[in-house]
Write a protein that binds this DNA or RNA. Structure first.
Lengths: 291, 291
DNA sequence: ATCCATTTGGAATGGACATTCCATGTTGAC
DNA sequence: GTCAACATGGAATGTCCATTCCAAATGGAT
């Protein structure tokens, strides 16, 4: 069909081949981000997959990676060639090299962080403080939660018709994420605490076939405690999450859990509570699915 | 020392073949050290090489490793079979797995948990899975965040008149918690994404003296991306938090951070993101306090 | 010194792999 | 609407690789 002058294609190919490929992973990463806009659909897909799952690229075969990334193996080759490599294998070398370096330096990095804490910027210290606190919180959480109690809590909530999620102020992000997840999981729930005023009307509709999950940390939002107590008095099961056994929520709950978030300079993140909330949410959905 | 009846060895061999191979690198290492005395010359050579150059084993081919270790490829295969593997490839998997897991130290714990997972209740498994995932997420977070970039992000947001917090759906709990904390810390901020409709009116009031912090995870809420882009176009600095370098937010942000939350059975908690959010929030407040 | 068991080297083999090629789809310009 | 340029899917291909096999070598026992 088309008449290609003998010199046309070979020249093009040669020029492309002459473009030297990135020499290390960081360089490759930069180039990919730089050019992602001008990449065709499938190559963009590969680019995203490569940066999001670098380990897979390092260890997998073209075929296995192709399946994970939902493309053809040939697309992987084309992708590599697009960035100046001879083939997919050449690109893969960079991902492997990265992994080698990563492993050798990881422990060092942690040690370095601790050593020159003084030299670092204030914000970096704060950042490190919060990640360390998060680690501790989660450790404490796994130690503090009794599996049997957790199981009972799941049973109670899985059996409920509608799950009322009660949380104010600092606990609100927890329940709002649970509400989001329950929505995705097709578990009926009602978030209480959104707009002041209508809360009590909402709760008035709760029946003993429903259940509630309340979250409250000190300083306790007394409103949550009152609402939980009302529900309990009307025969509605309440499960709660607090940061102290003295929480007013504890006494009116069928099951309650204590999460002590470690703090950094007096500020607490919600890392452990979030992990707990998700575990509870998914467990409930799973129990329902199994019937 | 021990008297081997002629019939013993053949039996032994058969039994060894049936013995399941070590399941992880540490187990393999122990077994090798244990039996290195009774190994024939070439196999000892391989054993020494394997423990001294684990990375080579992980990435090399049987041929290339054979050359480095001064043995025949077939010796490598025999070595692997000696330890109960079907072939060299099986053994290589352990060396690769080791590299993957080195990056996150909590993998070990997770595996232990998984091993006796059968005995535990479903919900307990889920719970353990989420705490392990949270640990991993936070490890990844500390490795992924560049202190200098974090510092710059803090500068940008601390200098802002009002901080606009943009987040929808799954990211909403993050920004709602930041809004709560900013309130306590007397930092002026405006939560965007509460009630649909008024968002754009709110954002219309933003001036270049303000700044925005946007959070979005895939599947991206396109609304957030559009809003962030609009702000950026009007000269308002945007800092963002996403789970992929391909997030539409990344390209319109002055600074952006990648948090890859590890998942349990496909569900992600927000543990690491929460730690990041709090670190950022407190850092900003601290920077302001110091003037 | 001879023999047997075991180990070792190296060629042969069969399978898996990256890569290439071509037909089909898609996009955008005129 | 048509065409050209480019992107894509999928089968074909040839290379490289792990593995197997067998002959030779080694080492110890008698």
């Amino acid at each position: 069909m088309t008449v290609l002058l003998p010199s046309d294609r070979p020249d093009m190919t040669e020029i492309v081949a002459k473009v030297s490929p990135p020499q290390d992973f960081d360089a490759l990463r930069s180039v990919i981000l730089e050019r992602k806009g001008e990449l065709p659909k499938r190559l963009t897909q590969v680019a995203a997959y490569a940066l999001d799952h670098p380990d897979e690229i390092a260890f997998g075969t073209a075929a296995s990676i192709a399946i994970s990334a939902n493309v053809q193996p040939s697309t992987l080759v084309r992708f590599a060639q697009h960035f100046g490599f001879e083939g997919f294998s050449g690109l893969q070398l960079l991902f492997r090299a990265r992994l080698r370096e990563r492993t050798s330096s990881y422990e060092d990095r942690l040690r370095t962080l601790e050593q020159d804490g003084q030299a670092l910027a204030e914000s970096t210290n704060i950042f490190n403080g919060f990640t360390a606190a998060a680690h501790r919180s989660i450790d404490t959480l796994s130690a503090a939660v009794d599996p049997a109690a957790f199981e009972r809590a799941v049973d109670i909530l899985a059996a409920a018709d509608t799950i009322y999620l009660i949380a104010k102020r600092r606990s609100y992000p927890i329940s709002s994420y649970m509400a989001y997840a329950f929505g995705k999981l097709k578990v009926r729930c009602q978030l209480v605490g959104t707009a002041a005023g209508i809360d009590d009307d909402l709760l008035a509709m709760a029946s003993p076939r429903d259940a509630a999950f309340a979250v409250s940390f000190s300083p306790y939002a007394s409103e949550s405690a009152v609402q939980a107590r009302n529900l309990a008095a009307r025969g509605i099961n309440v499960v709660s999450l607090t940061d102290s056994a003295f929480s007013p929520l504890a006494e009116c709950s069928k099951e309650w859990f204590e999460v002590v978030e470690a703090d950094h300079a007096g500020f607490r993140s919600l890392s452990a509570s979030m992990a707990f909330a998700m575990a509870l949410t998914v467990s409930i959905a799973e129990k329902r699915r199994r019937g």
